[in-house]
């Protein structure tokens, strides 16, 4: 599959909190990238780098400070009628990080999953609503006996699957998965990742997969973006990012991942990233440059020359 059609275009997206005040935080600072139909774009970075904020701004949980998000050519953040908004809500969905906080503890699983169905009026009657919920439970590997239970009776992995069923209920095309596995045990992570992959194949979904666990991201993603302090510093096909990491921050991130292989661990050398290495001059323009095919790096012209010499 060679994805070419742009489903989502993020153009110069900025999200500042407390704008103009002393404690201004530039959570997302001029980030641009595209997401192609049917692909999985991974977004990695350390806590506080703005990766979650990027996801939440794309789905309109926050109003963007500046910049544009185009979904299928339609601007997400412009003023919209109720109907247009609802359409958008059906196309874009989100899976959350914390399997404990993401389900309403006072609602039955049936009502949690059916929430989207209720809001968008997707079921004509109660029987159809039930059937849809049962089907969704089946899809995520649970069964209909689970529908009448409350979230606290489930384990973390099961809850995460309920969260996925809730997102799928409105038949979205694009799903933002905000660290969906980082709160889960290793053996359960694989269940959820496999489920997400299967669903993508079956329904042709597009994912934005936000995570800090790089090994899983590499496994699930077609392309990966690396964020550092609100900026996207590198964007490349998954394989290429691992074999040809160019930005020093990406290199340090990759070198820090422990790997379940004692021999490899004994020889692993950690690189340390010091932002001072760039030594950018005030008049230098720093932006994303394509160094190898589809491999973009945030760098200056001078660094670009050096990178090209090294990696081409």
């Amino acid at each position: 599959m060679k994805p070419t059609e742009k489903l989502l275009q993020i153009k110069h997206l900025k999200q500042y909190f407390n704008e103009g005040k002393a404690n201004e935080v530039r959570a997302v600072d001029d980030v641009s990238f595209d997401i192609y139909k049917g692909e999985t774009l991974g977004l990695v970075g350390e806590s506080g780098c703005g990766k979650s904020t990027t996801g939440r701004t794309i789905i309109r949980l926050y109003d963007a400070t500046d910049g544009e998000v185009l979904y299928d050519g339609i601007s997400v953040h412009s003023k919209k009628s109720k109907k247009e908004l609802k359409d958008l809500n059906r196309k874009m969905q989100m899976i959350f990080q914390d399997p404990y906080a993401s389900l309403n503890p006072r609602m039955k699983v049936m009502d949690i999953i059916a929430e989207g169905i209720d809001i968008h009026g997707l079921a004509k009657n109660d029987k159809e609503r039930k059937k849809r919920v049962y089907d969704l439970l089946e899809t995520v590997g649970l069964n209909k006996e689970h529908a009448n239970r409350y979230p606290h009776e489930f384990s973390g992995g099961q809850r995460q699957r309920i969260g996925i069923a809730r997102a799928l209920a409105v038949e979205p095309e694009f799903i933002i998965a905000d660290e969906p596995i980082s709160a889960l045990d290793v053996s359960i992570q694989a269940q959820v990742v496999n489920l997400l992959k299967e669903l993508q194949e079956e329904k042709g979904l597009t994912y934005l997969f936000i995570a800090h666990d790089l090994s899983m991201v590499k496994y699930i993603s077609d392309r990966i973006g690396v964020m550092y302090f609100g900026k996207l510093v590198e964007l490349a096909p998954a394989e290429d990012l691992y074999t040809h990491a160019m930005h020093p921050y990406t290199q340090s991130l990759l070198s820090a991942i422990p790997f379940p292989d004692p021999n490899y661990e004994r020889t692993r050398v950690r690189k340390i990233y010091d932002p001072k290495v760039h030594n950018y001059q005030p008049d230098e323009e720093v932006k994303m440059h394509e160094v190898r095919p589809n491999h973009f790096v945030y760098c200056s012209e001078k660094e670009l020359e050096a990178l090209k010499a090294e990696h081409l």
């Binding site: 053996s187 694989a190 590499k218």
Partner: peptide, 19 residues
């Protein structure tokens, strides 16, 4: 259940069920 760096398209082994 951990992906290895070179295995790409194989399905991950997932332990079924819950503890």
């Amino acid at each position: 259940s951990m992906p290895s760096l070179d295995a790409k398209d194989e399905k991950l082994y997932a332990i079924p069920g819950t503890p």
